[in-house]
Design a protein around this nucleic acid. Sequence first.
DNA 1: GTTTTGGTATAACGACCGTTACACTAGGGG
DNA 2: CCCCTAGTGTAACGGTCGTTATACCAAAAC
Lengths: 205, 205
Amino acid sequence: MSGPPHTRERILDAAEALFFHDGIAVTGVDRVAASAGVAIVTLYKHFGTKDNLLREVLARRLEAWTRHWDEAVDRAGSPEERLLAVFDAVETFRAATGPTQWCCFLATASERPAPADDRTDPVFELIRQDTRLVTERLTRLASEARCADPDAVASMLLLLYNGVLAGLLRGSPANPVARARDIARLVITPSAPHRRRSPSRSHGG
Amino acid sequence: MSGPPHTRERILDAAEALFFHDGIAVTGVDRVAASAGVAIVTLYKHFGTKDNLLREVLARRLEAWTRHWDEAVDRAGSPEERLLAVFDAVETFRAATGPTQWCCFLATASERPAPADDRTDPVFELIRQDTRLVTERLTRLASEARCADPDAVASMLLLLYNGVLAGLLRGSPANPVARARDIARLVITPSAPHRRRSPSRSHGG
DNA sequence: GTTTTGGTATAACGACCGTTACACTAGGGG
DNA sequence: CCCCTAGTGTAACGGTCGTTATACCAAAAC
């Protein structure tokens, strides 16, 4: 415990902070190493490749987010509050971790070419894994909250979740988490105040 | 007007497509020029700098989006539909323009360092301009739709707007526009739920 | 006391990037 | 005619990037 205080973790911390505050492509490996107080060679001994470093950063981040969200759910009282806990978790997770601009996974997706190697690229697989995780958990929590249509509620909450994250990047609206909670309460009402029964407008495809 | 078929526009088209499909930093100027069928020197004669090219791409995009949104609003019938038209405009605007991953302004913000030169950087100014434009228009449309609190409605719709855009990047939920419309209808309930009169069209359509 | 482990410093490589200089061509208008 | 405009091709510049090779060092392990 006393020797090198987790060199690997320090590199991951520095990479996470720089990648998602300044941008991945614009951040050189040398800057990551310097920020971690580590030689470039050490970084390559540990991760071998910048892309692999990014991969491990995202994997660690996904696990941390999962754990953090779980704790927020456990702290909540009612099933409804457990469903809404995702929004508070976003806020506290950002406060607990570094100053990232917004969602690391969406930032990675936005910066990356979206080519044909979608299936084989492990980074894109991480992003899909994040989406899958959020969707499944929201569906489960909506089901436990006795929502009429858990899948529909989950997809609406996922849209609000996306809106909160993009709102953090845009800097607007102010306090997107509180706004999302307000809207979410309208959405998850078990007995929906149906204004009209027509499900939705026609859409292509 | 008749000689070279709008060389400048072709460069802007190519830059917009490549920047926001593959990423800005990862797209070299040579690839933009090649995609436009233009020599690199010509590109630099027109724009002088990659950053300046990005600036003009964003400026043009902002103007096109404004016009497109306006037309969608004009096509809508009721004041409520005029307020909701923003979501349909997103979909048709994407269909009309190139295959961008998602919002060009947010993609630029995500990829860029968010440093201290925030006030002087014209690119960040474009991004803020986009946010200002969307916010003000939503507020005005909410006011015209006789919403009780137009500012609150506008900020909620901005969150949904952000959610749609990020949803396009994430690829989930499916059909975020339809989802956002469903949620928006719950949000924009006017002071009284009376929809007594069918809207009068000010012009033929 | 040598080997192993984990880290460091320096330097270089090939590739690509944004940018510019130079010399050239084709067309249009005075 | 000459000049101006708009665009082309080639080639290079300085810089940065991701990555690797080489040699070195300290402490722990056997």
